[in-house]
Amino acid sequence: MNPRRKQRLMAVSAILLLLSGAVGAMLYALQENVDLFYTPSQLLEGIGKDKVKPVPGQRLRIGGMVVPGSVKRDETTLKVSFDLVDTGPIVTVHYEGILPDLFREGQGIVAQGTLLDATNIAATEVLAKHDEDYMPPEVAAAMKGIKHVPPSKNSPQQTYPAQNYPSQSYPTKTEPDQSSQQPKPATEAKQ
């Protein structure tokens, strides 16, 4: 390789190396902010070195698995509440609206909303998360014992506890200032 080519190769490699280093450092610094959602354990135990916990009134996303048997529907309205779990702690999501088709007990979901207190969230949007496994229904029934049942059929009619968090009295999308007035934890950007 002649010296000029070698020089150019070194220059290009140096630029690439420096830039990957910079991007790597940046992403490392932003690690928690790049996450789309909190898991229930992160919500209760805090994240990062400083164990920053979100404060009530903060808008955030929460992701976890719907605890089987925890879905409670209101008989007359679209209000629904359910519990989310990842590895231990359980948080409750309160939502009024139509749930995605994939929503069912045992399914991963991501909810966006406002933190009411340590373990309650008033959600304005619920998204279903699916895993990377794909198989025909027969195979799923044989392997996992899963039968495809629409969520409306597998949860017995449970009444929504009326004393729990009526959605009007808590800060929702209409009062976004509430969270910005409070001291901002580093995780604010996650919203």
């Binding site: 789309l36 998360k129 990377e132 025909p136 195979v139």
Partner: peptide
Amino acid sequence: WNTLHQGATITKFAKPSIDASM
């Protein structure tokens, strides 16, 4: 990171998590 997008199905060093018929 935590993402809404699911993990890799075939581009990983493990058996693809998709049925052979698919």
